[in-house]
Design a binder for these strands. Structure first.
Lengths: 228, 228
DNA sequence: TTTATATTTCGATTATAGTTGAAGCATAGG
DNA sequence: CCTATGCTTCAACTATAATCGAAATATAAA
C-alpha cells in the first residue's frame, strides 16, 4: 500500500524538536560533544544520547570517539542541504539571546590535552606543520613527511625514540574549543615536552592551561610562523 | 533554548507514514481527492481528513472545494523540492505491486459532471477551446474571448441567454479522472445541451456516461479537432 | 422528495515515542 | 590506587498522536 514509507523514516528524525535543534546546531559544520548538544536542546544527557544514537543509525550524523568524549558532526553535504531546504520553507527563526553570543566567546588560548598541546595554540601549531608539509593528515592519523622527519630532527626531537613507545605515534585529536584536529600521540607529547624544555611555555598553577613565555612567543613566530 | 523549532514543525508533518505517502502521491502535480489519498495510504477517510487538515494548516498542500469533493494538491514548488530532497536522501523504495498499476488504468472516457461534459472528452473539448482562443482561463473561471463569442454564436449557442441565468456562467471544474480543469457552469451546460440536440452524444442508460455517435465523432473532429 | 456519496467532527482507544532517575562503563587526572 | 567526568543502558512513567466507529453535514443523483 504505502508507496514510499522511507521518506517518513528520515523525516521523523527531523520532526522532533530536540533532534531538530541538535541538527541545526551542527549546521556550522563543526564537531560538538554529546553534552553540548544536550545543553543546546535543553534535555538531559540520557535523552540526548538516545536521540544521537537514532541520528547516527539514520545516517544523518557521524561520531568520532576521542577519549571520554563523543564528537558529532553532520554525516554529509546532502544532510546539510536537506536542513537548508527546511530552513527555507520554515517560518523565520526566533531572536537569539545576547547571553548565548557571550558564551561563544569563552575560548581557551592554550592548554594541555592529556599530554600534548591544545587550544588555539595547539591547533595553530598543527596547521602550521601541515602548511609547511611536515605533516600530512590521513584518516585519524598524521603522517610525518620526509621533510618533516628532517625538521623534527633538526628541532631536537628523536623520532626513532618516540616510535619505539607502545602508544600511538601521531594520532589526530579533536579540540573542544577550536573544533579542529590537532596533533596528539607520542609525537604531540614529544613536542610539548620539548617546548617545556626550551622554556617556550610554562604551566599555570592548578589548571591545565599553559602560558607562552617571551622566548616562546619569539620561537613560535620564527620556527612555526605563529603570532601570539 | 531551542534555536529553530520551526524546522521540527514542518518535518513532523512529513515524518508520519500516512502523510508522507499522501505527499509523495501528490508529487505528480495533479489533484487528488480526500478518499483517494485515504486509499493510497491505506487509512480510513476519517484519519485521512485529520491528516489533510494538518497538512493544509502547515501550508504544505492546498484545497479546492468542488461539489462534494475536496481536491488537494501540493502548495508550491518549494514543497515539491523539499520532498524531492527527501527522496534523494531516503533509502530506495519498495517494489510495487502489479495490481496498483492496473488500477491506475481505470479511466472514464466521457460522462456528465453535474450538467456538463467531463472525462477525457470534456477535458479535450476544453483544451481545444483554449487552444483555439475561444476561452481564456482566469483563476477559477473561463473567460469567453471576442473570437469565442463569435464562435459560440456561429455554433448555435445564445450567450446572452446563458448570461441572464442566475447560475455561474463559465466556472472551471476539476475532473476526477483526468485531473485537469474543464468547462462547467451555464456555458458548459449550454454546450452539453447542444451536443445532445445535435445528436453528437447520447446517454448511456442508468449511469452518467455518454456515448459519442458517428455524427459526433465527425463533428468533434471537424469543429474541435478532437479524434475519438 | 429520498437515497447515495464524500467528507468532516466527535469521542474513545491504543500505541508509541520522548523523557528522566538510577545504575553502569570508560577514561582522565591526581 | 581513587575520584570526577562524559556518556550510555535500563526501566518505568507520561504525554501525545494516530487510529477508527459513530454521527453529522453537504452535495449529487434518482
Amino acid at each position: 500500500m504505502s508507496i514510499n514509507p522511507n521518506v517518513a523514516v528520515v523525516a521523523s528524525l527531523l520532526g522532533e524538536t530536540s533532534r531538530a535543534t541538535m541538527l541545526t546546531s551542527l549546521m556550522d559544520g563543526r564537531f560538538h560533544t554529546a553534552s553540548e548538544l544536550a545543553f543546546m536542546s535543553a534535555i538531559t544527557p540520557q535523552t540526548a544520547s538516545f536521540h544521537l544514537s537514532k541520528l547516527v543509525e539514520g545516517n544523518l550524523i557521524n561520531v568520532e570517539k576521542h577519549g571520554r568524549h563523543r564528537y558529532y558532526q553532520l554525516a554529509n553535504k546532502e544532510v546539510a542541504h536537506l536542513i537548508e531546504t527546511f530552513l527555507a520553507i520554515s517560518p523565520p527563526p526566533e531572536v537569539r539571546s545576547l547571553k548565548q553570543s557571550n558564551q561563544v566567546k569563552l575560548l581557551q588560548e592554550a592548554r594541555t590535552c592529556y599530554d600534548h598541546l591544545a587550544g588555539k595554540l595547539g591547533v595553530a601549531l598543527t596547521d602550521s606543520m601541515l602548511n609547511a608539509n611536515y605533516l600530512k593528515k590521513e584518516d585519524r592519523e598524521f603522517i610525518v613527511t620526509p621533510k618533516g622527519e628532517q625538521f623534527f630532527t633538526d628541532f631536537g626531537i628523536d623520532l626513532t625514540e618516540l616510535k619505539r613507545k607502545r602508544r600511538s605515534f601521531s594520532h589526530s585529536c579533536l579540540d573542544w574549543s577550536e573544533r579542529h584536529y590537532h596533533l596528539g600521540g607520542a609525537l604531540g607529547n614529544g613536542l610539548l615536552t620539548h617546548f617545556f624544555e626550551l622554556n617556550w611555555i610554562v604551566h599555570v598553577p592548578s589548571i591545565r592551561a599553559v602560558k607562552v613565555t617571551d622566548r616562546g612567543r619569539e620561537g613560535f613566530k620564527q620556527i612555526f610562523n605563529i603570532n601570539m
